[in-house]
Design a protein around this nucleic acid. Structure first.
Length: 113
DNA sequence: GCGCTGATTGTTGGT
DNA sequence: ACCAACAATCAGCGC
């Protein structure tokens, strides 16, 4: 595996609990001028891929149910099952990296606009 | 160097 | 247009 454990950075499950306890988030203020919209997570890919299927199997289900269904199945999914989604997520991360690069380059060149 | 928190992504449906 | 649970993820700041 190319994934070599750097340290404890990802081991701790603190932030997830903290984030859940801290406060519900959604659209929060944007501080950066041209903030490079972060990449989509594997779950986002999963929602896009399954949103149609879930909606079809659960025509009555609305956002709430769909969300829970996707989350439940997502958790049930094995690493192999997530693999394709994670792969897309990684691809998106790369896209984000490109945006970040431009964002960084831009801010370095002209941040005042 | 590690630790946490904030910000962001996408879905739908209602107001 | 925004917000709600669902999960992930990263970048930036703090000590």
């Amino acid at each position: 595996m190319p994934r070599v454990k750097s340290s404890a950075t990802e081991s701790k499950a603190s932030r997830k609990a903290a984030a859940a306890d801290t406060k519900k988030r959604t659209k929060r203020t944007k501080k950066d001028p041209n903030a490079p919209k972060r990449a989509l997570s594997a779950y986002m890919m999963y929602s896009q891929a399954n949103r149609d299927r879930v909606r079809k199997e659960n025509p009555d289900a609305t956002f709430g149910e769909i969300g829970k269904f996707l989350g439940a199945e997502w958790s049930k999914l094995s690493d192999d099952g997530k693999a394709p989604y994670i792969k897309k997520a990684e691809a998106d991360k790369e896209r984000y990296a490109t945006e970040k690069a431009e964002y960084d380059a831009k801010k370095d060149s002209d941040e005042s606009d």
